[in-house]
């Protein structure tokens, strides 16, 4: 489950045209066997990052390696390791589901056709129907089933549930978690809705305007942050790990990144913070220290134990109360 990384990006960047950077300075180490959620607003660079990750786009700068090897999409072995479901899960409209299974079977060496047929039967999707006769939820399930039938080591899903109703979303995610439970599979999926990722993902990458704002194990991130509530404090410069501050007339709420178990000052009441609040707080942060954020990241990861890293590190001023 752990060990080598599934994907490693080093200084990855993609420029469209002469000056529009869709993605910049992206250095990430995504652990194998995890379900990784890529979060960000529309236009944050999610699709660009996903397509760079699997070789559908060529980076302007930086490198990608997949399972410890430099990414090569021109070799069939590399392609067989990746399953990809593009946005709106496109299918061949005129093909029946059975046609697509036959096609997939002849194009992929490790295609699990019996498994795919069993899954579709369990979902109640008739294989004789043409793709354009299926509901949106059924089309999504067919696209996911085809991608899983390849038996990939890495499954990449671009906004897989954005167009689905809540019930179809749940059914889709259920198929996904069952697949993860059954096989040694790393999943990278994007969404602009945090709440639907919180349960399914164990790792999160937050993109904002083409840059990585936050990344880490979700449990570590939640355990490493808390909301301190206490008497109004306008001078927050000395608060260690301050991410966001909101003030009432007589009291303040400070969202801080502090180690687990660090004792709070008695006048502060500490409460846990959910992933959604955390993400919103990081998105709302102004780029206060551009020189630091733009500095090149270390070429190698800092160590096996360091899974939590905050990219926009707050100036570590000494805590002075």
């Amino acid at each position: 489950m752990t060990g080598t990384s599934a994907l490693r990006f080093s200084g990855l960047g993609k420029r469209y045209g002469r000056r529009t950077w869709a993605l910049r300075d992206c250095s990430l180490d995504l652990p194998q066997g995890n379900v990784i959620g890529l979060v960000g607003a529309n236009g944050a660079g999610k699709t660009t990052l996903l397509q760079l990750a699997i070789g559908l786009l060529k980076p302007t700068e930086g490198t990608v390696s997949m399972f410890g090897r430099p990414l090569r999409m021109d070799s069939p072995a590399g392609l067989a390791e990746v399953g990809f479901v593009a946005q709106d899960h496109p299918l061949y409209r005129g093909f029946s589901v059975a046609d697509m299974l036959r096609y997939g079977n002849s194009m992929n060496p490790r295609f699990d056709r019996p498994g795919a047929e069993r899954r579709l039967r369990e979902l109640g999707i008739p294989t004789e129907h043409r793709a354009d006769r299926l509901s949106g939820g059924q089309q999504a399930q067919v696209a996911l089933t085809l991608a899983l039938a390849k038996q990939p080591r890495l499954l990449v899903l671009d906004e897989p549930v954005a167009s689905l109703d809540p019930l179809a979303r749940r059914e889709f995610m259920k198929t996904l978690v069952e697949a993860v439970a059954e096989a040694d599979l790393t999943v990278l999926l994007s969404s602009h809705v945090v709440t639907e990722l919180e349960r399914v993902c164990d790792h999160v990458v937050l993109l904002h305007q083409g840059r990585v704002r936050l990344t880490g194990d979700i449990d570590d991130l939640i355990a490493g942050h808390r909301m301190l509530t206490g008497p109004r404090t306008d001078d927050t410069a000395g608060v260690a790990g301050l991410i966001a501050a909101t003030h009432g007339t007589r009291h303040s709420h400070l969202l801080v990144r502090q180690p687990v178990g660090m004792p709070a000052h008695p006048r502060w009441e500490a409460n846990p913070v959910g992933l959604e609040d955390l993400v919103l707080a990081y998105l709302a942060r102004p780029d206060t220290e551009p020189p630091q954020a733009a500095s090149p990241p270390p070429p190698e990861p800092a160590g096996p134990g360091r899974r939590l890293s905050i990219v926009t590190d707050p100036s570590a001023a000494e805590r002075q109360a």
Partner: peptide, 14 residues
């Protein structure tokens, strides 16, 4: 693990 993951729609690793 698989049953809990499918019933709650949560990550099996969790």
């Amino acid at each position: 693990v698989r049953e809990v993951a499918a019933a709650l729609v949560v990550n099996p690793n969790t």
